[in-house]
Simulated assay, not measured.
Amino acid sequence: MTIRQRIPSDNLALSELWLRSVRATHTFLGEADIQALYPQVRDLYLPAVQVWVEENPDGRPAGFIGIDQDKVEMLFIEPEQRGQGIGTRLLDFVRQRCGPLSVDVNEQNPEAHGFYRHYGFHDTGRSETDGQGQPFPLIHMALAPSSNR
């Protein structure tokens, strides 16, 4: 599989991947929440960060990661491809470029929290609300500079 930088024409396909992934993993969000976030992801969040895409052999995105400096802002994988190492490869890829990383994880998404802990991140704090002030608590995490992967 190939990892490449996002191009603007990817935004629709990546937004659709985001939608499928969120519906599969973010069970704490209602459909109204997801529908409200969708255009923001497509039109605001994807263009605002550096995004790397892992492609399947047929060119379809298998997953993507969005970073802002050394902070992981988004990491989403096609639901049927979870558990195949895509998230780890994307984290390894950006870590080589950015060094130690940080991430905020929804507290109500224990699978994501476990994934990042398994990768080597540790909890550094907690917020009662998400970045939009919604009542979705976040766990702040950081990857130690000396963490070997």
Rank of each mutant, 00 (worst) to 15 (best):
D92F: 02
V103T: 05
G66W: 04
L44S: 10
Q81D: 14
M141E: 02
A142E: 10
I77A: 11
V72W: 00
R23Y: 08
R95L: 13
I139E: 03
D104L: 03
N56D: 09
Y119N: 06
M1K: 01
M1L: 10
G85P: 13
L90W: 03
M74F: 02
G85S: 15
C98K: 05
V103N: 04
F115V: 04
F115N: 03
N109E: 13
L46W: 04
M74C: 13
F28Q: 11
H118L: 11
Q84M: 15
G133C: 09
F28N: 09
Q50E: 15
T88K: 08
T2N: 08
T88R: 11
R82P: 04
R20G: 10
H26A: 07
K71Y: 05
T2A: 11
V53M: 07
Q81L: 15
P61M: 06
R97P: 07
A24W: 06
L19Y: 14
D104W: 00
P39L: 14
W52V: 04
Y38T: 07
L37G: 06
G133E: 09
I3K: 02
G133L: 10
Q50M: 08
D104I: 01
P135R: 01
D43N: 09
F121W: 01
Q132T: 00
G83M: 15
L143Q: 03
F28G: 12
V94F: 09
I139P: 00
L75A: 07
G87D: 12
I34P: 08
P110R: 04
A144S: 06
T25C: 10
E111H: 07
R117C: 12
M74L: 12
H26P: 12
